[in-house]
């Protein structure tokens, strides 16, 4: 046992990806996200079935699976956009139980939506400063400075004073990412961030997400972009019918899927 532990440590030094694996083993450090026995029903429909998932600090998880498999529901439970019916969610050591714990968790977790959900009545800059000013009490000057920093990071500082409708889909999604980053979250959730985009705009958004992944941000990405998953993920999670069917490194997952369902799914989406 100690030998195995040492081996892990040595590997960690050499491989950035393995860093996540040591966190996941029984160290005392708290994980970024711990989900235990999560269940969720929509009336009689069992959307999540006893889902367990642990995400270490700095780990990048890609969740995939057929539509209706519960991927979005799962990550929406993490910041309580959906209430779960049973099970435990702990985010960065805070256990989700009441309104104040939800508030604390939302303060650590950023989210990017499929439909961008920018505020159309505000300018790009106002979209970015609203949260820091109202929720964090920053002054306008500080909030705008921070906003410009993240707009530069997503490479569209020149759009700051435009209205949302003046931007392309890809630009809007990058603004949405910057808006989340302005809250300086420890964890980012992406709910199919490129599914509503025209094909030519997908890569500009994925580049931003990859850049974020390389900076060590903990993230869960729900996506069908398998090229991105290979490039950025530490671990793949495959879901079907509300349950996690298979998890593994991208290499294991793509090259040697263990379950039949997973193989079928991969065949279908990688066919073309």
């Amino acid at each position: 046992m100690p030998v195995a532990g040492l081996a892990t440590v040595v590997r960690t030094i050499h491989s950035g990806k393995a860093r996540s694996m040591i966190d996941q083993s029984e160290t005392n450090r708290t994980n970024a996200i711990e989900i235990k026995g999560l269940n969720k029903w929509y009336d009689t429909y069992h959307a999540l079935k006893d889902v367990d998932l642990t995400v270490a600090h700095g780990e990048r998880i890609v969740v995939c699976g057929p539509s209706g498999s519960g991927k979005s529901t799962l990550i929406r439970c993490v910041n309580s956009l959906e209430a779960h019916d049973s099970g435990q969610i702990t985010v960065d050591g805070t256990r989700m139980c009441d309104a104040s714990s939800i508030e604390a968790i939302r303060g650590q977790v950023g989210m990017v939506f499929q439909q961008f959900n920018l505020f159309p009545h505000l300018t790009i800059l106002q979209n970015l400063t609203l949260g820091p000013m109202k929720a964090r009490g920053l002054s306008r000057k500080d909030a705008e400075e921070r906003a410009m920093k993240y707009l530069e990071r997503v490479q569209i500082p020149e759009q700051a004073n435009k209205k949302v409708s003046a931007l392309s889909g890809g630009q809007q999604q990058r603004v949405a990412i910057a808006r989340s980053l302005c809250m300086e979250p420890k964890i980012m959730l992406f709910d199919e961030p490129t599914s509503a985009l025209d094909p030519e705009m997908i890569s500009e958004v994925l580049d931003v997400i990859v850049d974020l992944a390389e900076s060590g941000m903990t993230m869960i990405v729900v996506t069908h972009e398998m090229g991105f998953a290979r490039r950025a993920a530490d671990r793949m999670v495959f879901m079907d019918h509300g349950a996690i069917v298979e998890t593994g490194t991208p290499e294991e997952f793509f090259d040697a899927p263990k379950t039949e369902r997973c193989r079928t799914f991969l065949n279908q989406i990688l066919k073309h």
């Binding site: 939302r106 939506f113 929720a135």
Partner: peptide
């Protein structure tokens, strides 16, 4: 007003009133 708007507001930490 689409539900996504209030969801986005929640994720950037705004209270109900805000």
């Amino acid at each position: 007003i689409a539900r996504g708007q209030t969801e986005a507001a929640k994720t950037i930490g705004l209270t109900y009133t805000q």
